[in-house]
Amino acid sequence: MPLRPQQRLRRAFEAWLLRRVPRQALPQRVGRRRVYIMPTPAGYAFGALVFALWLGAMNYANSMGFALAFLLAGVGLVAMHLTHANLLGIHLRQCHGKAVHAGTEAVITLDLGHDGARPRPAIFAHWPQSVAADRDGADLPASDTARLRLALPTEHRGWLSLPPIALETTFPLGLFRAWTWIRPDIRLLVYPAADTRSPSFPQANHAEGEDSGRHLGREHFDSLRDYRHGDPRHDIHWKRLAKDSKPTVKQFLDTADRRLWIDWQALSGDPESRIRQCTRMVLEAHRHGWQWGLRLPGVSLPPDSGDAHRHQCLRTLALLDAPATPHG
């Protein structure tokens, strides 16, 4: 979508401002140094109105017209200071978000607060225009906190440093927009995107061992039996433990060999594509409650199951330095 010149100018101005915003550890307090303030479109209209009133008063030599024009000029100037003050002293206390897959939107929660004795109405947060258009706002009560949520689109796997966050307000009159940039020194893990096109677990590469020709997915789990001392912990059926009083253990037909291995070498395609395929398999294996291992160039994760394992796998995949040589 082509940008209008006005937007382009605004983005250029924004980029120029953002170059001087350092990364800062949270919590950050909005000080007087870095609050910017500009009229809003309504503010420009108000300025034109005051000017028109002044011209009219002069033309008709109207004293009360002058009084009105100057009163409104005063109102505008005071509103500017109040807008500026409405942002001062606000803390960005916390800022976090859950890991998401590349290509989806991460929801970042911002904890805003302040210690002032007056409420701070209409405080908004948003990303730079070049990043995303999402905005969220709240009226901060006196000396209290509020939580804002901003959706942040992700593109690539790996660490995503949070873009600068603008805190802004147009309160009280909407004639001026005061804002400040905070660039929290926080990064967000972005899992790789899951492949959606290739079939899951193609026969040739989803497992190894003598049973590789069979569909392990439906068969490697057999039955439940009571827990005996020495059973591996990950075989315990934890969900059932909540219902029954005694622990039960999942029993597998062929425990060693039939565990699922997701193997980089067995996949085809360029590295990013393989990472996406691996991601998909990890997600699917986790959904079925299977155990799986992950074998990647230079790193191998032994078979296991559960959320922590899933996270470990996805994290490894997210941060994998993709081998330069594509597989032939």
Binding site: D115, G116, A117
Partner: peptide, 22 residues
């Protein structure tokens, strides 16, 4: 006007930043 603006700014900032104990 500059003087008045300075006073108004000081007043606005003062009321805005006056803290209450948590």
């Amino acid at each position: 006007v500059a003087l008045l603006m300075a006073v108004i700014a000081a007043l606005a900032v003062r009321t805005s930043l006056r803290e209450v104990a948590r």
